[in-house]
């Protein structure tokens, strides 16, 4: 029973961690709380859903997919298309957010970019409601779940797929930030815009790149969340956004690995507390953790990379 709950916790934590990494990246380079990040997550789920519906709806495409699947002897090719498409879609959204609500807003006034991203939040949510309707929509099961039994533990192929995808993406994200040239530029920009610019980093481009990267990650998280819960709704963004904020803080502002670990930690804590203490106490526990961390260790569990100013 406990192991089963731990798996559920990991699944929930994967969503939190992927959204929180985006938050923390954006906060790192801009000191900005990107309020619309949860809505990007929601949009990712909708993009994925539309792609799955389209691809199973058009006969030629559906047949082609079947052929590829039987040729390669795998299932769930469709989901890769959905994830890939959602990534591109949310990446574009991320870039649009920069051009519409971040670059034109003077960030001498620290609250102005926050308010403009809140505007984007309202915009995205209501456009989604207008286009897709304001109701819960079911996500068609595109992989037939195969159940595996390991001792008392049951895990199905969808869960494995979600966890593997999440880990693969977050791993490559870590590699990108820590080991590549552009990652070094991102880290330099996080330390100081002026110094980075003096050293030849194109700060504007880095900000744009970080937004796109974070949005892609949130989009994939959205698709995976849609697959996991087998439904999507225009209102799914807010809760994940708030919880991911907690994870960002828990992991230390600007700390990517911290956000990842904190995401899984919080997901597990939430699942365990709602299983053993009742779901009413779950949020209470989460936000008590938030407040405790804020008061006693504002640098987070794993240290912040953001110099307090």
């Amino acid at each position: 029973m406990l192991e089963q709950q731990l798996i559920n916790g990991l699944m929930l934590g994967a969503s939190y961690a992927m959204v929180a990494i985006g938050y923390t990246l954006i906060f790192g380079v801009l000191r900005l709380l990107h309020f619309a990040h949860g809505e990007v997550f929601m949009l990712g789920a909708f993009f994925g859903l539309q792609i799955v519906i389209y691809m199973t709806g058009v006969e030629v495409v559906a047949a082609a997919i079947m052929a590829i699947e039987s040729f390669l002897d795998v299932k769930g090719i469709l989901l890769f298309f959905a994830i890939f498409g959602a990534m591109i879609g949310t990446g574009i959204i991320g870039a649009l957010v920069v051009f519409v609500a971040v670059r034109p807003v003077d960030n001498k006034f620290p609250l102005a970019p926050l308010i403009s991203t809140i505007g984007v939040t309202i915009l995205i949510q209501n456009v989604t409601i207008m286009v897709f309707g304001g109701t819960l929509r079911s996500f068609p099961a595109s992989i037939e779940p195969v159940r595996y039994q390991i001792g008392d533990l049951t895990i199905d192929s969808v869960q494995i797929f979600i966890l593997v995808t999440a880990f693969a993406l977050m791993g490559s994200m870590w590699y990108l930030i820590e080991k590549t040239r552009i990652g070094r530029a991102i880290r330099a920009t996080s330390e100081s815009h002026e110094t980075a610019a003096l050293l030849g980093v194109n700060v504007n481009f880095i900000v744009l790149f970080v937004f796109i990267l974070a949005s892609c990650l949130a989009g994939v998280a959205g698709v995976l969340d849609g697959v996991k819960n087998s439904n999507v709704s225009p209102f799914m963004g807010l809760e994940v956004a708030v919880k991911a904020l907690v994870c960002m803080l828990l992991g230390g502002l600007g700390n990517i690995v911290g956000a990842l670990v904190a995401g899984f930690l919080l997901g597990t804590v939430e699942i365990l507390s709602s299983a053993y203490l009742g779901s009413g106490l779950r949020d209470f526990l989460t936000f008590s953790i938030l407040i405790t961390i804020l008061l006693f260790k504002p640098t987070g569990l794993f240290g912040t990379r953001v110099v307090r100013d």
């Binding site: 609500a101 807003v105 403009s116 505007g119």
Partner: peptide, 15 residues
């Protein structure tokens, strides 16, 4: 929804 979309656009332009 349109009312809120207009509201959001106004807020972004204001900022």
């Amino acid at each position: 929804e349109k009312r809120w979309i207009a509201y959001a656009i106004i807020i972004i332009l204001m900022m």
